[in-house]
């Protein structure tokens, strides 16, 4: 192997990427209150302790409501924007799409504070509803990116054939376009759900006294005794993320296979 040096480097890099995540299950099953080597023994007690906290149940319920709503709304907005930008030309398109994609590069703190100021000035009560408003904003750019590539690979002649056969724009969309971009929609829903589930800053500042899973975890960090049960919770969350992402990746690839385009890889 001529390039074994490069391969070795890449593998070491992957080890660096995965090192923290691999420590999670190690300490989640470790029979010690202190997160340090050497390991002392196997236990599942931390998982039981984690689940015994009723605050977690409430945070989990809030997170599921927020993440599902944000995923559905962001994907809906994503379908509109991605369809408009891939199918039509209109003045100021770059500017409008730039604004929609802006949260990708804007620090979340600035998005959160700007929204907070406006909501407080309008006298809106902070709740999980205001978290959803913020999460839709930051999930939409990801939805647009995924859906744009789905809409981009559509063959325009299929749509024209439908018009020639007497279908209306709406029925063409429902019968021809929607089924073809369906894998993209599923992938966008899953990615938006994952982003919203993990998001902390907006949930922390716009949630008022309502906590989501990430805000709950942040609160637990203050108590050193709670660290092992957070490791247990983290293990479950990492597994859940990997499952959701694998399903999203499966649908993304099926979408590419269905439209016959080459795989360019990656979600971003």
């Amino acid at each position: 192997m001529k390039f074994s040096g490069l391969r070795l480097y890449t593998i070491l890099y992957l080890v660096f990427l995965y090192a923290p995540i691999l420590l999670l299950p190690l300490f989640a099953f470790n029979d010690s209150k202190v997160i340090a080597f050497p390991l002392s023994g196997f236990t599942t007690a931390w998982f039981a302790e984690m689940w015994a906290d009723t605050q977690l149940h409430n945070a989990l319920k809030n997170s599921l409501i927020v993440a599902s709503s944000a995923a559905i709304l962001a994907t809906t907005f994503g379908v509109f924007a991605a369809r408009a930008s891939t199918r039509f030309n209109f003045p100021y398109k770059a500017g409008i799409m730039g604004l929609v994609m802006l949260p990708l590069v804007l620090p979340e703190m600035i998005v959160a504070m700007a929204l907070l100021i406006v909501l407080l000035a309008m006298g809106v009560n902070l709740s999980i509803f205001t978290i959803i408003l913020g999460h839709v904003l930051i999930c939409t750019p990801f939805a647009v990116a995924i859906l744009s590539s789905a809409f981009q690979s559509l063959d325009k002649s299929l749509e024209e054939a439908a018009y020639d056969l007497g279908e209306t724009p709406l029925s063409t969309f429902r019968l021809i376009i929607l089924p073809l971009v369906m894998p993209g929609i599923v992938s966008s829903l899953l990615i938006s759900f994952t982003i919203s589930l993990d998001e902390f800053i907006i949930a922390f500042f716009l949630g008022g006294n309502q906590t989501t899973l990430s805000v709950y975890i942040f609160g637990q960090f203050r108590f050193p005794a709670k660290v092992p049960s957070i490791m247990a919770l983290g293990t479950i969350l990492v597994l859940l993320s990997i499952v959701l992402l694998s399903i999203a990746e499966f649908f993304r690839r099926r979408g590419l296979a269905r439209s016959g385009t080459k795989d360019t890889g990656g979600f971003l």
């Binding site: 994503g78 509109f80 408009a84 604004l99 929609v100 802006l102 939409t140």
Partner: peptide, 13 residues
Amino acid sequence: LVSPTAAYAILLL
């Protein structure tokens, strides 16, 4: 087509 998304981004961003 773009108006719902654009309106949301204008109002909330």
